[in-house]
Design a protein around this nucleic acid. Structure first.
Lengths: 346, 346
DNA sequence: GCGTACCGTTGGAACGTTCCACCGGGCGCG
DNA sequence: CGCGCCCGGTGGAACGTTCCAACGGTACGC
């Protein structure tokens, strides 16, 4: 109620400042500042008096002034990659939500910006950090050779990556999900169900993430003494490719199960199975990757590997905090385990 | 290159300031400021000299200082509602992407924050605006009786809503999508295909959005002289409810097509059809709402109403700009037309 | 010739916070 | 008693920008 008084006349709301609080509490500005930032420095009764004045006036510290003085904004920048309406986007969106939650707990907020053109890695990043608009970045798209990771490292811009650095030289903090462990779990699950001819449908060889996920499948197959020759296919990440690859593999290698590098590819496989009158989970098993809404909503459901984005977000923010405090967290990466969500398709 | 010189010694990068530029260009600070904010005030040769100094030093205005002085942050707050993994979320996420793009063009950025608990509408909003962290808000969840819309209006906080105010008293700027027009288009599409018994599966009566969408269906049916009695069902927005409602309607009213208030409900309907051996689009037609990834990925595809979130975002930002400039845009709302994406299910 | 107006530019002040040097006083200790 | 120290607190300065009042100079109208 008291705070609403500030708004009676519009146009010049003129919020209470630290000086107002100081005057009311009968202390200096610095003491009020300490009450907010280092309460332990104050005597108990002084602290109480200041706090009373703060609540009575409805005082809230002015962000801009604080930022100017401390040279930090408590804002984390996140570049939103252009929207592609498929399964892959679902994981990013889940991550954004998780990141917002995680940053809040750490007293930060998330600033979204747009990668104008992907060609210029500096686009956006540079201005934001130089104008002290954000303290650091979370970088999500390190996979495509990640020009911006290198750029940011050069520029001395603090950031943490969601995704391993696939170039050996890089030594920034990162958090990632162990894709191989995910596909390995999927493969093991299928083997436990009695399958022996498990096919792989993944991405082209130039994708390190794709190769990582593929390794989980082949490793597990070999671990069980099973061959993989002729059972793998590497294609574009789209429904049509999954559809075609499934057809080819079914004809040439007769697998009884498919492990896919993405839900998108799995969708294509399911489409092919439907066309041939094969029932997923009964005749041929299928697993996807990312646990997209599609996997969940599909009749019967699609077994899929779910990335622990909430945990990723927490770890990212943790690294970020350390980075901004000590300014030295180089080379520390964490690999998190995804888990398999088993549904009707397997 | 020149700008990198600032970073040679880490720890105290000490970016160039306006004063540095002024010194180099041989003018006063204010002139540099004008060069950035009101170039027309400068003589051509002066402007050129200043700009040369700016680029040479790699100067970027300090955001915090500017914010402090101008009492604005050029940041727009958006509260991210808790993540629910279904079709409805897809539209919000699309909107977030669109909003980021639209705000960039207007020179703004998006600040994400988290609605700690939905019970307290003030949570988050108040602090952010009082601390001058954001200039205004975009409010997305006005549908649930929207306590925060009223709260923000009371507090004099500038905001624009994505969604109509469903309480008549409210008079804030808003942009929304005409749900009735969407379902009307879906219904008309089905009628054109020769259907006459078109069922409706929507949300409970307490949802204004749901009633709006329902009106589009009933209006169109009546407009063609067709009855709606016994053809409608109002349930929770989940797959199971759609599934059950479809079963009941099929038994009791024998519709040959369903218009659904959401892709989620449509998913339930499709599931029921599959169970009964009915082929969507051949035996019974189905349309959804929101054009979620699921609708797109489903084998055959689900006909669905797609909201023009890109256009919504542009309009929202436009309103926002006017609001922050003139401080008077009351009562101005815009209703945008969605469009029907026809796929195999109809 | 003089007053007036405008143009381009200037220097000081202000925004609201935190950093920094310092201060009085009480206490322990030699 | 005198010294040093820590505690709780103070006031001035600084962060980097824009606002504001005012400047000299030129052009114009009378």
């Amino acid at each position: 109620m008291a705070r609403d008084l500030q708004r009676v006349q519009d146009g010049a709301p003129s919020l209470p400042t630290l000086a107002d609080v100081a005057a009311m509490a009968g202390v200096s500005r610095q003491t009020v500042s300490n009450a907010l930032n280092n309460p332990s420095l104050l005597r108990a009764d002084t602290l109480e008096r200041v706090q009373a004045a703060i609540t009575h006036l409805g005082y809230t510290p002015n962000r801009a002034a604080r930022n100017l003085r401390t040279k930090s904004s408590r804002l984390i920048g996140l570049r939103l990659t252009p929207f592609v309406e498929d399964a892959a986007n679902a994981t990013i969106d889940r991550f954004v939500h998780a990141l917002v939650q995680a940053t809040r707990q750490a007293g930060y907020h998330v600033l979204l910006f747009d990668g104008e053109d992907a060609a210029d890695p500096s686009s956006g990043y540079d201005d934001l950090v130089r104008s002290t608009a954000v303290d650091a970045f979370v970088v999500t798209d390190t996979f495509k050779g990640s020009p911006q990771a290198a750029y940011l490292e050069d520029g001395g811009v603090p950031f943490v990556a969601f995704g391993r650095p696939w170039t050996p030289a890089a030594l920034h903090p990162w958090v990632d999900v162990d894709g191989a462990a995910g596909t390995s779990a999927a493969t093991a699950h299928l083997l436990a169900k009695g399958h022996t001819r498990v096919g792989w449908i993944g991405w082209r060889k130039d994708s390190p993430i794709g190769e990582d996920r593929r390794a989980g499948w082949s490793r597990t197959m070999h671990g069980h003494g099973l061959p993989t020759t002729g059972l793998a296919s590497r294609v574009e990440d789209c429904v049509a490719s999954g559809y075609e690859a499934a057809g080819v593999l079914l004809d040439e290698a007769a697998p009884t199960a498919f492990v896919c590098a993405s839900d998108t590819l799995a969708t294509g496989v399911l489409r092919k199975l439907g066309e041939r009158g094969l029932v997923p989970g009964r005749d041929v098993a299928v697993t996807g990757f990312d646990d997209s809404p599609f996997a969940q909503l599909l009749p019967g459901g699609l077994t899929s590997v779910r990335q622990p984005v909430e945990e990723v977000a927490l770890q990212v923010v943790d690294r970020l905090g350390k980075l901004l405090a000590h300014r030295e967290v180089f080379g520390s990466g964490t690999l998190l385990e995804p888990h398999l969500v088993v549904r009707g398709s397997s």
